[in-house]
């Protein structure tokens, strides 16, 4: 069955993932132009972009555990998933700079240094920039496989920072940010616990 799934997945072109990744953005644009963002469009734009970025970040983190646990391989799509994550993180930050903070550079600079949630968010964003910039084949060749892989392991830092960014921004314990922080913790822990493909995944790949 696993082989069947993987064969089916092989027939899905990577551009289909790019297309799917653009759907939340298209919905957002639709809502902006039809007034579907509610009373506070600034916060809605900002939050939706940030949450979508986090979901793709988690999606990218789930690829390896999924492969090791079940043998289902989404490895071909992982780079696209990561770049799509950045494609939402960038406008999320821009929405904060332009729409939310209204380009008040002084207050932004002070806030980033003083507010943990912004420090966490910016830390995560800086890592995502480095990963996105080096996500092409040329960078991979120039850096060499080992250095490139070492750099891209920073995603293990970026993801918990992004989760903490959300947790530190809310006033009371809300379900969604706690749930996604737990998912990230589980995915990272699974890498430590399950270091190689499980035995039951082997026959399907033989």
């Amino acid at each position: 069955m696993i082989r069947g799934i993987n064969n089916a997945l092989r027939r899905i072109p990577v551009w289909a993932v790019w297309l799917a990744g653009a759907v939340p953005f298209a919905v957002l644009l639709w809502d902006i132009f039809t007034g579907g963002l509610g009373v506070d469009p600034v916060q809605e734009v900002e939050h939706r972009l940030g949450q979508t970025a986090l979901y793709f970040l988690i999606g990218g983190l789930a690829v390896t555990p999924l492969l090791r646990l079940t043998g289902v391989s989404l490895m071909r799509f992982r780079r696209a998933i990561g770049v799509i994550c950045f494609a939402y993180a960038l406008p999320h930050v821009l929405a904060w700079v332009v729409l939310d903070m209204g380009l008040l550079w002084g207050q932004m600079a002070r806030d980033i240094l003083k507010r943990p949630y912004l420090l966490f968010g910016m830390g995560s964003f800086l890592i995502l920039i480095a990963l996105a910039v080096t996500s092409n084949n040329l960078s991979l060749r120039r850096m060499g496989g080992q250095a490139w892989r070492r750099l891209h392991k920073l995603v293990y830092v970026a993801a918990p920072l992004a989760a903490m960014h959300w947790l530190w921004a809310i006033k009371v314990n809300e379900i969604a940010p706690i749930f996604w922080a737990a998912v990230i913790a589980l995915l990272l822990a699974s890498r430590l616990v399950i270091r190689r493909p499980m035995s039951w995944t082997r026959p399907a790949r033989a």
Partner: peptide
């Protein structure tokens, strides 16, 4: 402690 009160966003 977690955010500035120097400015505000005007709803609407």
């Amino acid at each position: 402690p977690r955010w500035s009160q120097a400015t505000e966003r005007v709803i609407g």
